[in-house]
Deep mutational scan, measured.
Amino acid sequence: MDVFMKGLSKAKEGVVAAAEKTKQGVAEAAGKTKEGVLYVGSKTKEGVVHGVATVAEKTKEQVTNVGGAVVTGVTAVAQKTVEGAGSIAAATGFVKKDQLGKNEEGAPQEGILEDMPVDPDNEAYEMPSEEGYQDYEPEA
């Protein structure tokens, strides 16, 4: 019985440690998101679009440190934060509304985080759909 109880105690310690790591990862992701939003706020009209992409990228980098179902929630929060940063930029006159959601080359930025393969159960990952990809044929 002692062996059984000791095993359960060790398992509990492992769960607590994993929860603490997840909590730490979420806190880091939130900190990076805040950094990115402050970065966007300090940019001029020309830099705002690039700044919004930076927020998304920093958040995406930190999301990889967070495991399990938390990833889905962090990704949703990050996307809403990026959308909010863009709205703030438009409201303050840093950028025109028609410039939001495009990178410096004018290509749409939507789907940055949505296409990231995420499995809350950590069982399997699927690649994003290939609808947006084109076949590449090298020139002879």
Rank of each mutant, 00 (worst) to 15 (best):
V48P: 00
G73R: 09
K96F: 13
K21E: 01
K58A: 12
H50I: 01
G132C: 14
V37S: 03
K45V: 06
E57G: 08
V40Q: 01
M5Q: 02
S129A: 05
S129R: 04
V3Q: 07
E139S: 15
V77Q: 02
G47E: 05
E46P: 02
E131K: 06
D119C: 10
Q24M: 14
G106P: 13
G7Y: 06
Q62D: 02
T92L: 10
F94S: 12
A30L: 10
K12R: 07
I112H: 15
A85I: 13
E28P: 02
G84A: 15
E28G: 04
K96A: 11
E110A: 04
G93V: 12
D98G: 08
G7H: 14
G14F: 13
F94N: 13
V15N: 00
Y39G: 07
V66N: 01
G73A: 14
G106H: 06
P117C: 08
F4A: 01
G132T: 11
K97W: 15
T92H: 06
T75S: 09
A69D: 01
T54E: 04
D115H: 13
P120C: 05
E130C: 08
V15K: 00
T75C: 08
D121G: 15
V118A: 12
T59M: 01
G14E: 07
E130W: 07
A124E: 09
E126A: 15
F4Y: 13
A17H: 09
E83G: 08
S9L: 02
T59H: 00
G84I: 15
E110D: 04
A91Y: 11
E46R: 14
E139R: 13
G14Q: 06
Q62G: 05
Y133A: 13
A89P: 05
A69T: 00
V55A: 09
V40D: 00
P138W: 10
A89Y: 09
A91K: 06
G86H: 15
Y39W: 09
T92C: 15
E104D: 08
Q134K: 15
V118P: 06
K10S: 04
V118M: 13
V49Q: 07
T64H: 15
Q99P: 01
T92F: 12
K96C: 06
A30Y: 15
K23F: 09
L8F: 03
Y39P: 00
K10R: 06
G31N: 13
T64S: 15
V63L: 08
M1A: 00
D119Y: 08
E123P: 10
T75M: 09
E20T: 12
P108G: 03
K45L: 07
K23D: 00
Y125P: 04
G68D: 02
Q79M: 08
G41C: 12
A11W: 15
E13W: 12
K96P: 04
E139K: 13
K21L: 13
N122V: 13
K32W: 13
T59E: 00
F94M: 03
E61F: 05
V40A: 13
V48G: 01
Y133W: 09
E61H: 11
T44M: 11
H50S: 12
K12S: 04
E123Y: 13
A91F: 09
K58S: 08
E35H: 03
A19Q: 01
S87E: 11
K102P: 08
K23L: 02
F94T: 13
D98E: 14
K80V: 08
F94I: 02
V74F: 07
K34S: 02
G67S: 07
E105K: 02
S87K: 07
V70T: 04
Q79E: 02
A11F: 13
Q99N: 10
T22I: 15
G68F: 04
A140D: 15
A19H: 06
D135F: 10
A85T: 03
K23N: 00
N65D: 03
V95W: 10
E130L: 14
T81E: 01
P138H: 05
E20G: 05
E13K: 09
V63T: 03
G47S: 15
K97F: 09
T75I: 08
A69W: 15
A17N: 08
G7T: 14
T54D: 01
Q79K: 15
Q79F: 08
E35D: 10
L8W: 09
I112D: 04
V82C: 07
K58C: 03
L8C: 03
Q109T: 08
A90T: 15
E105M: 06
K58N: 07
V63S: 02
D2F: 12
E57Y: 08
E114T: 07
F94R: 01
F4Q: 00
E83T: 12
P108M: 04
L38A: 07
T75Y: 12
K34H: 04
A78F: 14
V118G: 12
G73F: 04
A91H: 12
V82G: 03
Q62L: 07
L8Y: 02
T64V: 08
A91V: 05
A85L: 14
K12F: 04
T54L: 15
I112W: 11
D98W: 12
P117F: 09
P117S: 06
T72A: 10
A124N: 01
V49G: 02
V82K: 08
E57H: 07
A78T: 15
E83F: 05
D98H: 12
V63R: 01
E13I: 02
D98V: 02
V77A: 13
K23M: 06
E46F: 15
Q99R: 08
K80R: 07
A56R: 14
D2V: 03
L8I: 10
S87I: 14
T44K: 01
G73L: 09
E114H: 15
G14M: 15
G132A: 06
S42P: 01
K43E: 01
V52I: 07
M116G: 04
F94D: 14
D115W: 04
Q109H: 06
A53P: 03
E123D: 12
Q24T: 09
S9A: 04
K21S: 11
A19V: 10
M116E: 08
V37N: 00
A27L: 12
E20Q: 05
I88R: 05
A19E: 00
V26Q: 00
N122F: 04
E123C: 14
G86R: 13
Q109V: 07
E110I: 05
K6M: 03
F94W: 12
A53N: 03
V71Q: 09
T81R: 03
P138D: 07
Y136S: 06
P120E: 05
E61S: 07
A76S: 12
V52F: 02
M127I: 08
T59K: 00
Q24V: 09
T64K: 04
P117V: 10
Q109F: 07
K45N: 03
F4N: 01
P120K: 09
G86I: 12
A17D: 10
E131Y: 05
A19M: 06
E110Y: 08
E13R: 15
T44Y: 12
M1D: 00
A11H: 01
E61W: 10
N103Y: 10
K45A: 13
M127Q: 08
G31K: 15
A27Y: 13
E61P: 03
V15C: 06
A69K: 12
K10N: 13
S129I: 06
T54P: 01
D119A: 10
A89G: 07
K80Y: 07
M1N: 00
G7E: 01
T81Y: 12
M1C: 00
A90H: 14
E137N: 07
K58H: 11
M1G: 00
K34V: 14
Q24Y: 13
K102S: 02
M5A: 04
T22V: 04
K58Q: 15
A107Q: 07
D2M: 06
S9D: 03
E139F: 14
T22Q: 01
K97E: 02
Q134P: 15
A53E: 06
N103T: 07
E126F: 08
T22K: 00
Y136H: 10
K97L: 15
K6W: 09
V37C: 05
V74G: 02
Q109I: 06
N103D: 11
Q109R: 09
Q62I: 11
G68I: 13
V37Y: 15
A30D: 00
G31S: 15
A89T: 09
M1P: 00
Y39V: 09
M127V: 14
A69Y: 04
Y125N: 09
G31Q: 11
